[in-house]
Write a protein that binds this DNA or RNA. Structure first.
Lengths: 342, 342
DNA sequence: GCTCAAAATTTACGCGCGTAAAAATTATCT
DNA sequence: AGATAATTTTTACGCGCGTAAATTTTGAGC
């Protein structure tokens, strides 16, 4: 501080007693200049607090240091949490993460991808909206920008996919529920992404394997306000003909959270006590599922592993400059989280 | 499509049969060229799909079209929701919103502001961390970039503040609670921001005005995992000497959500029925408070009004080029939301 | 059709930086 | 110390665009 304002790299180089390209080299990699030079620059940096113009930098650079992160719905704490995780990892590696939410709208998702294209990111981590996504547009984007998909898969789009193994996690909780009480029925809403379909399919095969008839209940709802869908749908079912069995496995935790609220509204006791009227289980280990009443039995998705792997695959991709061999799909196993709702 | 790839504005101008500056003018404001010209450009645009290089654009432009949005903790659905709202409004006005979360860390908050400085945004909407924020750094930032504070105030920092009127909302729910049952005690955690202090003060004065002795309970906790703090603190209190009264007004909904879970854990019935053991109320109308069991009685912060006004004030500020008269503070009233927990 | 002001377009220059190639410096080894 | 290789620094040029000033075109009124 204290020194006069520096307005560009040339001026800063002058006050450092160096040439501009040397300073430029330093900013691209402080270790690429000799220690003595680095010290002089860093001393001047303290004194004058100059910082390079990003726009001018990125104009000619081979690669910007930005990484795009796109999630379908940021008001869902699951995505907020995973985004937080990913952001942190990018920052630690010296990249510049930019976070975007599609807010559940396909048009916005495409808008975001178009904006991202202009930003020339070195890579993008994309959790697509799913069913409503414009496949062609996303495909075109992935052809231009190194992209790793996570959470929700789109067949053969992007360089890799990282998600949860629904075919493992659903049987896990189905087995548990069958072992500890009446067989579950499956509550779902119109599928927003492939996970919903995979979970239903996994439920059916798990039940058949155990010799039970799989029973599916679908409630209506076309928003991303899943709790509300679970609440209203649950209210309808419970007030009407009831669920096929008194154990309900929900397609995801947010539905389950709504269903628990509905049961409470109707003064039905939820849980595994003998005097309970209904057992409710979920899937995801949503950040709030510890705090429902009763706390929600569910299958934990491995947030940390998914974000860690997604970022790692993207970094490898960036280093290999997009040439990383065939597209890979990585699925992480879920862990049973036994709480009090089932 | 179909046409050869265009690599810069000069080439695009050529294929459009125009000069580059005319095209440049179009991109800055399509209405600033005559209709005939605009049509030619737009026809070429469809044919060649060219888009200007943002970095080159922003390098010389008087103002970038970017607006920074900084929230303290994006995994909190309250902030996710308000950020969603603000983003949308910025997009509608033709700006380019960029969203950042401080993740509860003061160092990251400063890091974000420094990055933002480089991005030369036309304006910033900042919800500071609060108590832990580095006041000096934020002050310095606000001196350089037109900034509107929201949610959490820092005295005389930024061009304006928009938030909730705790001095109105707390008495509102205190009155309600006193009128409908035993007087409330106040549950808080170590204050993370000025709102927490204002709410406590408002509670004390509201109680005194009604002729009751204000009783405050503080639980420990230094993370942003408020539900967990409410849960553990609540468990301690309920298992120990209990709360001073059987009505607990929590400093915010997330604490209340944790406390409800704690009460349920101890098989204490929560609510306003005659057989309930405890009444619990919150503050904020957090997106999840509709789905607790029982649903949470609370005071709704006016999300929409806060985001609308924040954005409007910022736009006015931008138009006035920072010269907007004295700093203003706008507080919106809360609305009582009667549900079943109190 | 003509004049003149208003609007649109073109000319010309510079923004702040990256980077290849040339030049200078430093380090290594005999 | 001297020769050569390795590294660092400098010279020189261009990136893609914004924008002031100069020029041309357009349109209104007579």
């Amino acid at each position: 501080m204290g020194g006069a304002k520096i307005k560009n790299m040339q001026e800063f180089a002058s006050v450092s007693g160096l040439s501009r390209p040397t300073v430029s080299k330093y900013f691209n990699d402080p270790n690429s200049v000799r220690p003595k030079t680095r010290d002089r620059i860093e001393a001047a940096l303290v004194k004058y607090d100059y910082r390079p113009n990003i726009y001018a930098m990125n104009q000619n650079r081979r690669s910007t240091k930005t990484i795009g992160i796109v999630v379908p719905y940021l008001a869902d704490p699951f995505f907020a949490e995973i985004a937080r995780n990913i952001e942190r990892r990018c920052l630690d590696e010296g990249f510049w993460p930019l976070l975007f939410s599609s807010h559940g709208e396909a048009a916005l998702e495409i808008g975001i991808l178009n904006s991202l294209r202009s930003l020339k990111p070195v890579g993008v981590l994309l959790a697509p909206l799913g069913r409503r996504s414009d496949r062609r547009e996303i495909e075109a984007f992935c052809a231009d920008v190194p992209t790793v998909l996570f959470d929700s898969n789109i067949a053969s789009v992007g360089k890799a996919f990282i998600g949860s193994d629904n075919a493992q996690s659903i049987p896990l909780i189905v087995d548990y529920l069958c072992r500890t009480g009446t067989q579950p029925c499956f509550l779902e809403m119109p599928p927003v992404n492939p996970n919903a379909n995979k979970r239903r399919a996994a439920f059916i095969s798990a039940m058949e394997r155990l010799g039970h008839e799989p029973q599916i209940v679908r409630v209506d709802g076309k928003t991303w306000d899943f709790e509300q869908v679970g609440f209203e749908g649950g209210l309808d079912m419970l007030r009407g003909r009831g669920f096929p069995t008194d154990t309900v496995l929900c397609s995801n935790d947010r539905l389950a959270i709504g269903l628990i609220a509905a049961a409470h509204e109707l003064k039905m006791k939820v849980g595994r006590d003998s005097d309970a009227a209904i057992r409710i289980a979920g899937h995801d280990d949503h950040p709030f599922s510890r705090f429902t009443s009763p706390s929600l039995t569910t299958v934990a998705q491995d947030y940390a592993a998914i974000s860690r792997r997604s970022v790692k695959v993207l970094f490898d991709l960036i280093e290999a400059e997009g040439e990383i061999g065939p597209r890979t799909e990585t699925l992480f196993e879920g862990k049973l989280v036994m709480r009090n709702s089932a």
